[in-house]
Design a protein around this nucleic acid. Structure first.
Lengths: 260, 260
DNA sequence: AAGTCCATCTCGTAT
DNA sequence: ATACGAGGTGGACTT
């Protein structure tokens, strides 16, 4: 594993190290006083101050101030980094083609530069999202109600996609809008638009409903609902079904399954 | 300026340094092999691997893998960080109250730990956003067309806010939807909803239009428009006006003004 | 504290 | 390459 760190290097030493690191596709950490210019989708400049610079082997380039989660300036993965010396200062440039974006960092006083070929072969395992909810409901439709049979996922309508379409035990059409977190008014409006879309557009579901004189039921499925959204669904004749998103990590699930 | 760096410390040395850094409200950078658990709005776990950990004095806590702009795990500003030793490993915990979220990092092999009181008194100066466009149009309404008079900004309707309301030279009502980047179908749909909202709701603008037999004109204002959005606009009788977002930094603007 | 909307959103995914 | 939607969106602002 290649790993180097330099404290208080001069510009030339720093340049050499950065050059070496970029060639080796290493991850670079720099703590230094710098000045930043960005031009691309927007335009920005940041005057002299100390920041932490992170350059990743995938081309991602981050500049962090001592506040906030978000970097003050950045470039996305696949950007090309180059370094050069000018006026005895180290410059770093990160360039992106489409859209055309250029980040330029002038570096004055360097506290340290580190580079390393990071060894990390793990990916984040996560749960608790809308997709997990959707998977769970497709697997266990009785969570919605007895007799519910889901038929279609991501059904395209004018204003978006209906998360799950299905039928109840009486063959009424059910339109499910899923939210992994507390549902607000916007979720109800979204569902209402989808219902309008279904009713206003020519489609097989609508034809079948009309032919069989069945209803179209709108269901908002979420762990909980805000008060104003609750009021709105009552006005709109939409139903609310409380369902918690699954909080089971894939790894745990696999272990559970392996147990059988 | 306080600044310390330790290479390959053992767990106890690392614990001491982190403790000191947290007490001094310093910014901490750690490059180490770690394992991460998160529970809160969602749930995640990340197995052993090398990462870069950043802890900021405002409480922000970031864990970066060697890919992507976004941290693999994080906590927002105002989170509380604490550290402890267990089974001869260093643990870092970052805790948030509302919503309740806990990030736990177990650290095994540390390549280096650095802390420093970062000196940075500059804020990012930027331009090229929707708000800048809005400001510019309020100042120079002729950019939209001769005789345009803007009256209201951020006018609230059912599905959101109309960016700018105004009148043309013939006293027709104008509804402007601004986009700082290339406008897509979603922008047209948004504007269409706002127009419907205006027409379906009881409001003074509508009354005046009806009384004076004036039209309501919908205008999408953006630097450019996508092909499918252009088609939709023509169907809907909405107009498109090409306006570039201003690309002038406040600092530059001041200088320009000072020149007079 | 909670809601709303913009963002150099980023990131995945389907087209 | 482009389009579209989700996100532990973050962050600024309003209520």
């Amino acid at each position: 594993m290649k790993y180097k760190i330099l404290e208080k290097p001069d510009s030339e030493q720093a340049y050499e190290l950065v050059h070496e690191a970029l060639r080796k596709r290493a991850t670079i950490v720099i703590y230094a006083c710098c000045k930043v210019n960005y031009e691309g989708r927007a335009l920005s400049q940041l005057n002299w101050g100390e920041r932490i610079i992170l350059i990743k082997p995938d081309g991602a380039f981050l500049i962090h101030q001592e506040k906030k989660v978000e970097p003050v300036n950045w470039q996305p993965p696949k950007s090309k980094t180059r370094s050069y010396l000018k006026d005895d200062n180290l410059f770093l440039e990160s360039h992106r083609r489409t859209p055309k974006e250029l980040l330029t960092v002038e570096i004055r006083k360097i506290h340290f530069i580190n580079y390393a070929n990071i060894e990390d072969y793990e990916e984040l395992e996560q749960a608790g999202y809308e997709k997990d909810m959707s998977d769970m409901i497709m697997e266990k439709p009785h969570l919605i109600e007895e007799g519910f049979v889901p038929t279609t996922r991501e059904y395209s309508v004018e204003h978006g996609f209906i998360d799950i379409l299905g039928k109840d035990k009486d063959n009424n059409l059910m339109v499910l809008e899923l939210k992994a977190r507390k549902a607000g008014v916007s979720a109800v409006k979204q569902l209402r638009r989808y219902l309008q879309d279904l009713e206003n557009t020519d489609n097989d579901y609508l034809k079948e409903c009309n032919a069989q004189k069945k209803k179209i039921r709108g269901l908002l499925v979420a762990p909980s609902i805000m008060d104003d959204a609750q009021e709105l669904i009552e006005e709109e004749g939409i139903e609310f079904v409380a369902v918690e998103p699954p909080r089971e990590l894939k790894r745990d699930k696999k272990t559970t399954l392996d147990a059988f």
